Amino acid sequence: MSQFTPDADWLHWHQSPSKPHYKPPAGAVDAHCHVFGPGDQFPFAPERKYTPCDASKDQLWALRDSLGFARNVIVQATCHGADNRALIDALQQSQGLARGVATVKPDISDAQLQHLHDAGVRGVRFNFVKRLVDALPFDGLKSIAERIKHMGWHIVIYFEAQELAELYDFFTALPTTVVVDHMGRPDVSKSVDGPEFQLFVKLMRENENFWSKVTCPERLSLQGPPHYNDVVLFARSIVEAFPQRVLWGTDWPHPNMKTHMPDDGKLVDFIPRIAPTVELQRHLLVNNPLRLYWPELQEN
Rank of each mutant, 00 (worst) to 15 (best):
residue 116 L to E: 07
residue 116 L to M: 05
residue 117 H to C: 11
residue 118 D to P: 00
residue 118 D to S: 14
residue 119 A to Y: 05
residue 120 G to V: 01
residue 120 G to A: 13
residue 120 G to N: 08
residue 121 V to F: 04
residue 121 V to M: 04
residue 122 R to E: 02
residue 123 G to T: 01
residue 123 G to C: 03
residue 125 R to Y: 02
residue 125 R to W: 02
residue 125 R to E: 03
residue 125 R to C: 05
residue 125 R to S: 06
residue 125 R to I: 05
residue 126 F to S: 06
residue 127 N to G: 08
residue 127 N to R: 02
residue 127 N to I: 03
residue 128 F to L: 08
residue 128 F to R: 08
residue 128 F to D: 04
residue 129 V to W: 01
residue 129 V to C: 09
residue 130 K to A: 13
residue 134 D to Y: 10
residue 134 D to Q: 14
residue 135 A to Y: 05
residue 136 L to R: 15
residue 137 P to T: 14
residue 137 P to G: 13
residue 138 F to N: 12
residue 138 F to P: 00
residue 138 F to H: 11
residue 139 D to E: 11
residue 139 D to Y: 10
residue 139 D to W: 08
residue 140 G to S: 06
residue 141 L to E: 02
residue 141 L to V: 07
residue 141 L to A: 12
residue 142 K to N: 07
residue 142 K to T: 09
residue 143 S to I: 06
residue 143 S to Y: 05
residue 144 I to G: 07
residue 145 A to F: 03
residue 147 R to K: 13
residue 147 R to Q: 12
residue 149 K to N: 07
residue 150 H to M: 09
residue 150 H to N: 13
residue 151 M to N: 13
residue 153 W to M: 07
residue 154 H to F: 06
residue 155 I to K: 04
residue 156 V to M: 12
residue 156 V to C: 15
residue 157 I to Q: 08
residue 157 I to R: 07
residue 157 I to K: 02
residue 158 Y to T: 13
residue 158 Y to S: 15
residue 158 Y to K: 14
residue 158 Y to L: 11
residue 159 F to P: 00
residue 159 F to G: 07
residue 161 A to K: 09
residue 162 Q to I: 09
residue 163 E to R: 15
residue 164 L to R: 10
residue 164 L to V: 05
residue 166 E to D: 13
residue 166 E to Y: 11
residue 167 L to N: 08
residue 168 Y to D: 06
residue 168 Y to A: 13
residue 168 Y to V: 03
residue 168 Y to P: 00
residue 169 D to S: 15
residue 169 D to V: 03
residue 169 D to H: 15
residue 169 D to A: 15
residue 169 D to K: 13
residue 171 F to A: 11
residue 171 F to M: 12
residue 172 T to Y: 12
residue 173 A to I: 01
residue 174 L to M: 11
residue 174 L to H: 07
residue 174 L to V: 06
residue 176 T to P: 01
residue 176 T to C: 09
residue 176 T to L: 03
residue 177 T to Y: 00
residue 177 T to R: 12
residue 178 V to K: 04
residue 179 V to C: 12
residue 180 V to S: 09
residue 181 D to S: 09
